[in-house]
Design a protein around this nucleic acid. Structure first.
Lengths: 104, 104
DNA sequence: TAAACTTGTTTGTAGTACAAACTAGTCTGT
DNA sequence: ACAGACTAGTTTGTACTACAAACAAGTTTA
């Protein structure tokens, strides 16, 4: 229970934001999800989801692929290995904090 | 796994912020904590801790009491009943999201 | 009585989330 | 073939927020 602990257990701000936390949680379950599916599951607006996805892609946590389906673009997202690890680490950090767990 | 779920499980933004989450978690364990103790456990700066505590007090989640100890002011904080409930609700919401749990 | 220390509070700035407005392309009806 | 509606996102402007630096009010020390 020191300042040190909070350094160890610092919550990754890329994941900790509420909208992105939902997205990452969904992707962690689904393996792959397209824009509209995420739109429905998160309840975010399109603009908002778009910028959140960009942030996750920029962080290297999510892979974005655009493909043409029925002449239309379909954007699909999936967690990268880095993203999956970061999510795991985030959950551990969150649990450590909220459980008041002592570390080292 | 609908937009509905995310409404149910919406994360209380007063608690979800990283600094305040640590504070609330500590208060949930400690019953009562003073400013300096929170400063040490959270690793926040004084200014930052001060504004976070104000926000928790304004939300009705934390009770603030000032007392004189050795001629100096000592500020103590403790969770209100509302705050404790809100924390519990927050943890449930977080778990529901990150576990990809289906509700109703 | 001046300088340093304690215990916070206020303030200015930089960053961020948000929805509204926009863009690029597709389909539909006439 | 062309106008209007629809789809699938992206960009933009604003309002909020976290943050540390500067400040304040009092206390202790030299």
């Amino acid at each position: 229970m020191t300042a040190d602990q909070s350094l160890d257990a610092r919550l990754d701000p890329v994941i900790h934001e509420a909208g992105r936390l939902v997205v990452v949680s969904v992707l962690n379950e689904c393996q792959v999800a397209n824009f509209n599916f995420l739109l429905a599951t998160t309840g975010l607006t399109r603009g908002n989801l778009s910028t959140h996805m960009r942030k996750l892609v920029d962080a290297g946590y999510v892979d974005e692929t655009k493909e043409i389906v029925d002449r239309k673009v379909r954007t699909e997202y999936r967690l990268t290995k880095t993203g999956r690890q970061a999510f795991k680490k985030y959950r551990n950090a969150w649990s450590a904090i909220t459980n008041g767990a002592q570390r080292r």
